[in-house]
Write a protein that binds this DNA or RNA. Structure first.
Length: 578
RNA sequence: CGGGGCGUAGCGCAGCUUGGUAGCGCGCCUGCUUCGGGAGCAGGAGGUCGGAAGUUCAAAUCUUCUCGCCCCGACCA
């Protein structure tokens, strides 16, 4: 492809509203164009990248025996009522839903468990048909509360979703393991550094679940990893072992302490310098929402620990958990914000505790009275210990649960997520088959997603420098770039044309910068769009010699034109055989 | 949803306080010269200042409403 014939526009300046490198570079290089918040046009170069990612995704799914199909983005409400997810998705505000011309509720699919289940239900009758896995690559719609970071979190994005169907839990786990390997191969072939982590299943539901995180400091997800034990989990899901609390010097009777304006553990540490923070128990008031009601819930935790709202939400089987506002806190505790505690809460308020309170003796806690705390409180003596569950947020430096390693917190971009759904959808939507013994039972499902557009953005997040993108060869918009220094120079024209034809003839996608531009503009643009293999056709063209100048850096070499072609062929062949 | 900020040429911005016929850089068009890290000179095109209403002789500028975009969001009882 000649660059002079391409609709190719790059910007001199970076957009002022881009917060992350991938976003800024994609806009500057003309790869994407924002139509509205979280909605983008994929320009020709971007689309080539997306198609390459898709090709790898297809090849690996097909290799594993999965079958591609295409489901509609427009979906009727009825199937969402069957699975009982319409209300939840509407409440979350994530679903694009509206009424059609005849007043029927429809939505734009944020995911396709309902549609696939409906499709399979009409055809699945016997255990003999399983196992099988179906997948599609399609545009998804999610009305994100806050779209951001360019393609990282859009309201419309390209996703691959796959669904496996099995006769029982055991074979479902096998399908899941197979897909796990498919995912590893996909992200490896894309040239990405990534970490699979244990994950919370969220709104999709089901039992086991893992996320594939591209390692990047700008990632939206925090992950807990332990290099000693190999443990890796999203912090939403992660568990750890924390140090035991210090023993109090003596058993003292519970009493009230005046604590004017001491609303946080830091304030209290200033008032009680001798009291370890581990012996302060905080009580957080949450506003919890279920499908049919809303109620305040108080959760206790040790002063040095943080609560994980996802764990609270899962334990309560709620739709939403958020910190209570000032008004609700006053109503529940009868005090200003900052003095909530387990003793004297309004009647009927459910009290829970994080496992970190276990074994804490003689502690300080809020008095449910402004400017007042209780000190030297003992569970069992002064009050019953509330229902205690692990609600803790794993912190840097925690031990793994087995005590064999130390946890570090890093960040990642979630590009893939796989779930063992079990029978959640097959039961609610009545997807049954006859087993070997003739009995009817629900199919066992798994579901597996990859954000295609997000994967491309993550690749830039991981591969760039101050001059622009640096694409991994397998997903680069073009594998190779010919940079011709002087437009109209007969010798250069001839050699560049010859090399271009030779590469295209070998099935290699090559971009030829034949524009009438200065050298600086050509090099800047080449750096910006980040094509990995680069050949400069310049002053040595008369000797059939060119410069070998890979985007990732290293010394520029002057080599023969034929050798340059061989190098490109070899690099591309290696990438394809991976 | 709450808080903050911003909408002026394709892109990045100034002008607004103190109303008076809209400016800069990049990009674009034409010509000449250049040609190895975003070339130079000369000439030129391009904007109902997000939208609506109001105040005024006069509104990008003041007022009200509205739409859009960006950022932040309880650290913790």
């Amino acid at each position: 492809m000649k660059l002079s014939q391409m609709f190719f526009v790059t910007l001199r300046e970076e957009p002022s509203d881009a917060e992350v490198r991938s976003h800024a570079l994609m806009v500057k290089a003309g790869f994407i164009h924002k139509l509205a918040a979280g909605i983008y046009v994929y320009g020709p170069l971007m689309w080539r990248v997306l198609r390459k990612v898709e090709t790898i995704v297809r090849e690996e799914h097909d290799r594993a025996g999965c079958q591609e199909l295409l489901m509609p983005a427009l979906q009727p409400r009825e199937i969402w009522d069957e699975s009982d997810r319409w209300d939840r998705y509407v409440a979350d505000g994530i679903l694009y839903h509206f009424q059609d011309g005849r007043g029927r509720d429809v939505c734009l699919g944020p995911t396709h468990e309902e549609v696939i289940t409906d499709f399979v239900k009409a055809r699945l009758t016997s255990y003999k048909q399983m196992p099988f896995t179906l997948y599609q690559i399609q545009t998804k719609f999610r009305d994100e509360i806050r779209p951001r970071f360019g393609l990282m979190r859009g309201r419309e994005f390209v996703m691959k979703d796959a669904y496996s169907f099995d006769v029982d839990a055991e074979t479902m786990a096998k399908s899941y393991q197979m897909m796990r390997e498919v995912y590893r191969r996909i992200f490896s072939r894309c040239g990405l550094r990534f970490t699979p982590v244990e994950a919370d299943a969220g709104a999709i539901g089901g039992s086991g679940s893992e996320e594939f995180m591209v390692d990047a400091d700008t990632g939206e997800d925090a992950i807990a990893v332990c290099h000693d034990t190999g443990y890796a989990a999203n912090v939403e899901k992660a568990v750890s072992r924390i140090p035991a609390p210090p023993e109090p010097p003596a058993e003292v009777a519970m009493h009230k302490e005046p604590t004017p304006n001491a609303k946080s553990c830091d304030d209290l540490l200033a008032l009680f310098p001798d009291l370890p923070v581990e012996r302060m128990l905080k009580t957080v008031i949450y506003k919890v929402t279920w499908a049919d009601r809303e109620a305040p819930v108080a959760v206790m935790a040790r002063g040095d620990r943080e609560l994980n709202e996802v764990k609270v939400l899962n334990h309560l089987d709620a739709l939403n958990v958020e910190l209570a506002d000032e008004k609700l806190v006053k109503e529940v505790t009868g005090a200003e914000v900052g003095f909530a505690g387990p003793i004297g809460l309004k009647d009927g308020v459910r009290l829970l505790a994080d496992a970190s309170v276990e074994g804490v003796k003689g502690f300080l806690c809020g008095g449910n009275e402004t400017d007042t705390h209780y000190l030297d409180v003992w569970f069992g003596r002064d009050l019953e210990q509330p229902e205690t569950v692990d609600f803790g947020l794993v912190q840097e430096g925690d031990q793994t649960v087995d005590g064999n390693g130390t946890i570090t917190i890093t960040r990642g971009i979630e590009v893939g997520h796989i779930f063992q759904l079990g029978t959640k959808y097959s039961e609610s939507m009545n997807l049954r088959f006859a087993a070997e013994d003739g009995k009817l039972g629900p199919a066992w499902m798994g579901c597996y997603g990859i954000g295609i557009s997000r994967t491309a953005a993550a690749a830039i997040e991981q591969g760039h420098d101050e001059n622009g993108m640096i694409w991994p060869l397998p997903i680069a918009p073009y594998s190779a770039m010919l940079i011709q220094m002087r437009h109209g120079d007969e010798v250069q024209d001839a050699l560049a044309q010859e090399m271009h034809d030779a590469l295209e003839g070998a099935g290699i996608d090559v971009l030829w910068d034949d524009r009438k531009q200065g050298a600086g503009a050509k090099f800047k643009d080449a750096d910006l769009i980040g094509v990995p293999l680069r050949i400069v056709v310049g002053r040595d063209a008369k000797d059939r010699r060119v410069e070998w100048k890979p985007r990732s850096g290293g010394e520029t070499e002057v080599i023969g034109a034929d050798e340059a072609i061989e190098r490109v062929k070899a690099a591309v062949a290696e990438a394809r055989s991976a």
